[in-house]
Amino acid sequence: MPRAGGVYSAPPGTKGTPNTPIESAKYNALVDDLVADANAARPLTSGGSGSSTAVGAADNFNAAGADMASAATVNLANTTGTLVNITGTVPITALGTLPAGAERDLVFQGVLTFTHNATSLILPGGANITTAAGDVARMRSLGGGNWRCVGYTRANGTPLAIAASSTIVTPTLTLKQSAAPTPTAEGDIQWDTDDNVLVVGDGAAQQIFVPLPSGAVAGDLLYLSGAKAYTRIPKGTAAQQLRMNAGATAPEWFTPDTSGIAKAWVSFTVSGSTVTVRKSFNVSSVVRNASMDYTINFTNAMADVNYAVAGASKPQAATEAWGVAPFSVASLLVGSVRVITKPAGVSGDAEFVSVVIYD
Rank of each mutant, 00 (worst) to 15 (best):
G226T: 02
K228I: 01
A229F: 10
T231N: 08
T231R: 08
R232C: 04
I233S: 01
P234G: 01
K235H: 05
K235V: 06
T237L: 10
A238I: 12
Q240W: 09
Q240R: 13
Q241K: 09
R243D: 09
R243G: 02
M244A: 12
N245S: 02
N245F: 06
G247S: 14
A248C: 10
A250D: 08
E252H: 07
W253C: 06
P256I: 03
P256A: 13
D257I: 15
T258P: 08
T258K: 15
S259F: 08
S259I: 10
S259T: 11
G260M: 09
I261C: 02
I261P: 01
I261G: 00
I261H: 06
K263A: 13
K263L: 10
W265Y: 09
W265P: 02
V266D: 00
F268S: 05
F268R: 03
F268C: 02
F268A: 01
T269Q: 14
V270Q: 08
V270N: 14
S271L: 08
S271K: 04
S271D: 14
G272K: 07
S273W: 02
T274V: 03
T274E: 01
T274I: 02
T274A: 01
V275K: 06
V275G: 09
T276W: 07
T276Q: 02
T276Y: 05
V277F: 12
R278T: 12
S280R: 15
S280C: 11
F281P: 07
F281E: 09
F281I: 07
S285F: 09
S285K: 12
S285N: 12
V286I: 05
V286M: 03
V286K: 04
V287I: 11
V287L: 06
N289L: 15
N289Y: 14
A290D: 09
M292E: 10
M292Q: 15
D293C: 05
D293R: 00
Y294I: 05
T295W: 02
T295N: 00
I296D: 01
N297P: 02
F298V: 07
F298A: 06
T299R: 04
A301Q: 08
